[in-house]
């Protein structure tokens, strides 16, 4: 975080420090997010990548203060525009949610309330945060829909969610997130449920909107290919921990962590012709019973005794680059 402050004198939009979130279930304690640190500046797009179950959604909810029992944020800070959200009460948090920080959920089919019209769900978002008349809220909602490329927005405002397609619903969710012009949006795999063409469209639109408004964006996905064309920086998560972070080109061109390398190798388009698609061997570990040392050790071809004995800490091998590994892939020839 000192790095980003060096790069620009302004206070970062988001500065997460050593955030830990755990689920206290009868089956044991699940360390869903462990020692998470992130930093985002105005207008910056961060891709948060990791396979299913790596804790991306939990990380997003933790930032919003929306973790419900049996889960709890146990330690760490979330500095949003300099204010620590973990120290705020529910009332103060509520003023920020949907207003300064917005979130787009993973499943577009489930995020809109089936018995309320799109208009109601948009207008309530506006009126929860500012004193405006219904008429004004309505016209803003209409403009909001138009902005995400929805045709005939007036009609859509009167529609119920089930009358819209999945892609349309996700656009509505995005429009809702943008309504109050937040300075941070957390988008949780907003396009996974959609087909490829619509996905590309939405991606382009979101990118444009962020550039226009200066909104910082965390784009959560398990698909490295999606974010490589979108994000300024990429953070890779594995089993609840950040394992590598850096500028997108740097990560793609020269991954330092064995897991990141594995992820890149399994992206079809990046494979050389004739080369076989590589899958990372092994399974994601259960968060209830993480191994003693590095969580990736059972699947890592570089694992040593040290890896199994102790957990590696985050290192900063180069400016703007972080990796959590005892034996990072340093030289280009290490790339296989």
């Amino acid at each position: 975080m000192t790095l980003s402050q060096d790069l620009s004198s302004e206070v970062p939009v988001l500065d997460v420090r050593n955030l830990c979130t755990r689920f206290f279930t009868e089956a044991g304690v699940g360390k869903a997010v462990e020692d998470l640190s992130l930093c985002l500046r105005r207008g910056e797009i961060l891709g948060l990548v990791g396979e299913s179950g790596s804790g991306k959604t939990v990380a997003g909810f933790s930032l919003m203060g929306l973790i419900d029992p049996p889960g709890r944020v146990v330690s760490g800070q979330v500095l949003f525009e300099g204010v620590d959200l973990t120290a705020l009460n529910e009332r103060a948090l509520r003023k920020l949610r949907g207003n300064r920080i917005a979130m787009i959920f993973q499943d577009p089919m489930m995020t809109l309330n089936p018995v309320l019209t799109i208009g109601t769900q948009m207008i309530e978002t506006l009126r929860a945060h500012r004193r405006i008349s219904r008429a004004e809220a309505w016209s803003r909602a209409r403009d909001g829909l138009a902005r995400v490329g929805i045709a005939a927005p007036e009609e859509r405002l009167a529609a119920y969610p089930h009358q819209l397609s999945g892609g349309m619903r996700q656009r509505v969710a995005i429009a809702i997130a943008l309504l109050n012009e937040p300075s941070l949006i957390i988008a949780d795999e907003p396009t996974t449920a959609l087909d490829v063409t619509i996905q590309a469209q939405i991606l382009a639109e979101v990118q444009r909107l962020c550039r226009e408004t200066g909104t910082a964006l965390i784009w959560v996905t398990h698909d490295l290919a999606v974010v490589s064309g979108l994000a300024d920086r990429i953070a890779v998560m594995y089993a609840g921990r950040l394992v590598e972070e850096g500028r997108t080109e740097a990560i793609i061109e020269q991954p330092l962590h064995p897991y990141t390398r594995g992820l890149i190798a399994s992206v079809p388009s990046r494979n050389l012709r004739g080369e076989r698609l590589r899958q990372i061997p092994g399974m994601t570990p259960s968060l209830m019973s993480l191994p003693e040392g590095c969580a990736f050790a059972p699947r890592c071809d570089r694992a040593s005794e040290a890896c199994r004995a102790r957990a590696p800490v985050m290192e900063t091998p180069a400016s703007g680059r972080m990796v959590r590994c005892f034996h990072p892939l340093t030289a280009p020839e290490d790339r296989s």
């Binding site: 909810f61 919003m64 929306l66 509520r94 003023k95 920020l96 949610r97 949907g98 207003n99 917005a102 979130m103 959920f105 993973q106 499943d107 489930m110 995020t111 809109l112 309330n113 089936p114 018995v115 309320l116 309530e124 978002t125 929860a128 945060h129 969710a173 809702i176």
Partner: peptide, 26 residues
């Protein structure tokens, strides 16, 4: 347990609005 209730909270709605509109209606 539904996502739309959490989404309503993520929009910064008051607990009263979440309970009496989003939960109650469904």
């Amino acid at each position: 347990l539904q996502d739309y209730v959490k989404f309503a909270r993520a929009k910064g709605l008051s607990p009263a609005r979440v309970i009496f509109v989003h939960v109650l209606k469904n």
